[in-house]
Structures are given as C-alpha cells and as structure tokens.
Amino acid sequence: MGVIFLHTLNRMRGTMLGWGLSLAGVAILFMTFFEDIATQADTLKRLMQSYPPEVLALFGAIQDLSTPQGFLGMYFFSSMPLILGIFAVLAGSGLLLQDEEEGVLDLLLAHPIDRAQLFLGRLLGMMVVTAGILAIAFAGIALSTQWAGIDTAIVELAKSFITLYVQLFFLSAFSLMLSLLMPGRSTAAMTSGLLLFVAYFINSLSSEVESLRQAARFTPMHYYQGAQAIGEPLDWGSLLGLLGLGLVFLAVAWWRWRARDIRITGEGAWSWRGLLVRSRGSSA
C-alpha cells in the first residue's frame, strides 16, 4: 500500500501545489485589502444591501466586514465548498477510473497488490493531497494576517479549515462512489459536479427563499461552518454526520470495486445511448 500511496502523492503533487498556491495567493491578495475594507465596512454594507437579496445570498450572508471572521467568511470561506469542491469531484471520480480508462490499471493490477491496497493507498493519497492544498492555503492566510497585524488566533482559523476538509472528504467520497456505479469517469464527474452546483445554489438561496429551506437541509453545505468556526465551537454533530455519510459512500465504492471487472476496451460498460437503444428494443 505504501508504494501506491507514495506514487499517488507523487502524481498529484503538481495538483496540490497548483491549487494550494493559487488559493494562498487569493487569500493573501484579499487580506492585503482587509484594513482598507474594514475602515469602510459600513459604507460597503449599505451598498451591498441595495443589491437584490437573492444575489447577495450567493456570496453568503452579509457579514461584518470589519472583523477578520466576517471578511474571511465573505471573501474566502463562503465560496470554497464550490471552488475546491470541483477539485474534490475530479479527484474522486478519477481516483481509480482515470487509470482504468487509460488502460494502465490492467497492468498495475497484474502485479502482486490486492485491490484493497490499491483502493486504500490511492484514497489515502488523495486525502493527504487535499489536506496539503488546505495546509498551503491556511499558511497563506495565517502569514498574511500576521503581516497585516490582524488579530486572528491560528487555532481558530484552523477550525474553519477542518470544516472545509470534511466537506471535501464528503464530496470526493461521493464522486468516487458514483464513478464506480456509473458508466465512466466523465459521467460520474459531470453528475457530481452538477449536484455540487445545485446543492451550493440551493443552500445559498435558502437564506432568502423559504421554499428552499427544507431542501437545503439535504445539501452538505448546510452543515458547513466555514468562517463561523472562528471564535465559535465546532459543530461536531455536523462534522461527524458528514464524515459518517462519507464513509458510507466509501463502503459502497469499495463493494463495487471489489467485484469490478477491470475494463480495457469498454467491455462490460454501459452507456446512456446503449441503455436507450436497449429500452427501445425491449419496448418494440
């Protein structure tokens, strides 16, 4: 498993640095504006209140921009489940299927490693890379707050990242499961991505649209604290709930993976077009 884990880390190191440094850069950029924005927070708030509430809801609830918590929540943490969610969806759906669709898995699994080692080695690698991205982004924010002399406790900031990490774990586990239930990687990524966007918008708009409040409870973002975790206790119920559901997704993925015929030329695959042809054939 160690070889697979290290190989996964090695393959994903570019992804980790790319996402991590980009997010750290964005965080540093925003934090350099913090002092200026904080002094004009009231003006900005009045300006933003003139926007339609549904539009504002997409950027998160209007928060007190004069505090680091409000500022980070508005400009960084509110959009992270969506932005990093895209990474989680792509990483989860491609974790095993990218190599299968490229034909390399056939060769790797002909070597003396069992499927459990491959599954766990890759999963662990992906979760470490996800943690690495967040660690780089965290370092960016932590350093920029220190440089800017902003009074934010590092431990409190870390709590926000923990809630974000659990979101990403949930999303990548869900995408991995879909990739092993659906015809191929692209279908799984597309479906997971679509669900991610829908869930994000439902959750964001639910603060303004009452009819969406019930539906929002079924989205993972509903249980995401983000910047609210700064200065407040962690919502362990939500965190453990998401972790538990993520583990259920992984268990389903594992069950499908163990029984899977490794594909090389699409044998055993099913496609939407094939299903349509079959259903037409059976109804004729």
């Binding site: 070889v3 034909g103 056939d106 060769l107 790797l108 002909a110 070597h111 003396p112 090389i264």
Partner: peptide, 28 residues
C-alpha cells in the same frame, strides 16, 4: 507470474526506467 497485456498502456510522463522502477517496487 509475468504478464504483458494485449493493449499495453504505461504512464506517458515517466521514462521506461521510471515505469519499470514503479512496477518493480510493486514486486518488492
């Protein structure tokens, strides 16, 4: 066992030596 697939695919960004090193590490 040693196996050669009919439709061989290897990691394109590795050298042949790198690929063999990876596969050899799977064989301890």
């Amino acid at each position: 066992t040693g196996y050669l697939p009919g439709e061989l695919s290897l990691y394109p960004n590795l050298t042949a030596r790198g690929m063999l090193r990876l596969l050899n590490s799977l064989r301890r």
